[in-house]
């Protein structure tokens, strides 16, 4: 039997009377890459936030292996160290250098040795091509560089699961690639990830499984090839069509 790292069971999330996630259930195996896609406002960010207990939930449960992850729950701090998260933007600490951003949690939360953590941070920075930025402040970096640092910062805590919430959505097009490449590399090394993205070709390349979320439900769950070439549901079809453009070249000239 496959080993499940994450189990989401009957997850229900409401903001007031607005039910944003309705009885969501899915499991993630170790080493699996899940891509979550869906229209704006369908609850993708909320789902990720519930998985590492940044939001209280109204029903169901989130299990990391056998431990319940919920706000105020015991071991929450240790559990969060096993769940890394990278946000859309502005999540680096502006008052700390890149290196200090990365080493803060390992040193203060995990009580690891400074020398060891810094060595690891430098090695990871080198891997994403930012070794020379270790002493820079976040404001001195481009958007793409910031996001690569945010990924390294999450990695340095040694999480078992990584959550990415549209980490390229705020970037200029020419910087998107450098960030996506880092994520592709992580996937290649067997990291377990849940990725929310609007980059459809990237999703297709990196996903082991696609979850299509709409109206707070998982409407379709399929391997990427099948999802992108032959979606089963009407809603998924319509959603994917919004990424296609019909040629207008054949249009008759207007007077």
């Amino acid at each position: 039997m496959a080993e499940h790292l994450l189990t989401v069971r009957g997850l229900t999330k409401r903001f007031g009377s607005n039910t944003v996630l309705k009885d969501i259930s899915f499991q993630v195996e170790r080493g699996e890459v899940i891509v979550v896609i869906g229209p704006s406002g369908c609850g993708k960010s909320t789902l990720l936030r519930c998985i590492n207990a940044l939001e209280p939930i109204e029903g169901g449960e989130v299990l990391l292996e056998n431990d319940v992850v919920n706000p105020g729950g015991k071991n929450l701090i240790e559990l969060r160290q096993k769940i890394g998260m990278v946000f859309q933007s502005y999540d680096l600490f502006p008052h700390l250098t890149v290196l200090k951003n990365i080493t803060l949690a390992p040193m203060k939360a995990q009580k690891r040795k400074k020398a060891e953590v810094e060595a690891e941070a430098m090695a990871l920075l080198e891997r994403v091509g930012l070794k020379d930025k270790a002493q820079s402040y976040p404001r001195e970096l481009s958007g793409g560089q910031k996001q690569r640092v945010a990924i390294v910062r999450a990695l340095c805590v040694h999480p078992e699961l990584l959550l990415f919430d549209e980490v390229t959505a705020a970037l200029d097009p020419e910087m998107v690639r450098e960030v996506l490449d880092v994520m592709l590399n992580l996937a290649a090394t067997g990291k377990t990830m849940i990725i929310v993205t609007h980059e459809m070709r990237f999703a297709r390349a990196i996903a082991d499984r696609v979850l299509f979320l709409d109206g707070g439900d998982i409407v379709e769950e399929a391997p990427p090839e099948r999802f992108f070439t032959a979606p089963e549901t009407e809603r998924a079809k319509r959603f994917l069509e919004t990424f296609e453009f019909k040629s207008v070249k054949a249009r008759p000239a207007t007077p």
């Binding site: 590492n52 940044l54 701090i77 160290q81 008052h95 999450a154």
Partner: peptide
């Protein structure tokens, strides 16, 4: 201080107290 600062500190596994001390207060004081 934008809430995301607190949230990203939490998701790195920093406790609320350490988040206040190392992330929120230094920025707020400045």
């Amino acid at each position: 201080i934008p809430p995301i600062q607190k949230e990203s500190a939490y998701s790195l596994g920093l406790s609320p107290l350490k988040t206040m001390f190392h992330v929120i207060l230094p920025q707020a004081v400045s």
